[in-house]
């Protein structure tokens, strides 16, 4: 029997309809084997407020073989490589079963963000910090959330343009100054005021 997409299709249809679970999946390739999931950082964790993209590859043996998943968004967590996004989670390896789905796997990743398992680390450096310097760990993880996992605020740049135009500069000047300052509004103002 060739690879049967029936189950995968069902799962994807279900995921599109599901607005409650808080995970979403987008199809990235025409054969449906490449997907991208999104999970949000759980409340009360250093990942709160973060949005994490998960790269998903469906193997030809699915659902008898687990989907391959890795974090595309950088994250500081003992069971996720801070360099490659590789994940250490039993259900994505020998504890996978066809009773699980892409959705349940993504929800398990969310649960992993709530309860790291430093005794079975993917990233030894992060796990060390988690065990030995919990406060530093929390703040570092928070910093990574702020830096890498914050969804870009839509229209933030337009708002900056509008504010500077209101100060009396031409739109053309403002856009150029902002671009030169790599989006830093204060630097752009300074440049505009100095007539550069």
């Amino acid at each position: 029997m060739a690879f049967d997409r029936g189950r995968l299709k069902k799962e994807l249809t279900e995921l599109t309809r599901d607005t409650k679970s808080g995970v979403t999946v987008e199809v990235k390739s025409s054969d449906m084997m490449e997907l991208e999931g999104v999970i949000t950082g759980p409340e009360g964790t250093p990942y709160e407020g973060g949005t994490y993209q998960i790269g998903i590859t469906i193997p030809s043996g699915y659902p008898f073989e687990p989907p391959k998943m890795k974090f595309l968004t950088k994250i500081w967590h003992p069971n996720i490589s801070s360099q490659t996004g590789a994940i250490c989670l039993d259900i994505l390896k020998d504890q996978w079963s066809p009773a699980l789905t892409i959705k349940t796997a993504l929800l398990s990743l969310q649960a992993l963000l709530c309860s790291p398992e430093p005794d079975d680390p993917q990233d030894a450096q992060v796990a060390q910090m988690y065990l030995n310097e919990p406060d530093t760990f929390k703040q570092t993880a928070k910093f990574w959330t702020e830096t890498y996992a914050r969804p870009k605020e839509a229209g933030a740049e337009d708002a900056a343009v509008a504010r500077l135009v209101e100060m009396g500069f031409s739109r053309e000047q403002v856009v150029k100054a902002l671009a030169d300052a790599k989006g830093d509004e204060n630097e752009a103002v300074t440049a505009l005021l100095s007539g550069a």
Binding site: W76, S81, S82, T84, V126, M129, T136, T140
Partner: peptide, 19 residues
């Protein structure tokens, strides 16, 4: 200062590019 160092260290490039 220590936190700053810790964060800087967390961001440092590591050679494990191709795991």
């Amino acid at each position: 200062e220590e936190l700053r160092k810790a964060i800087a260290a967390s961001l440092a490039e590591q050679p494990a590019a191709d795991e």
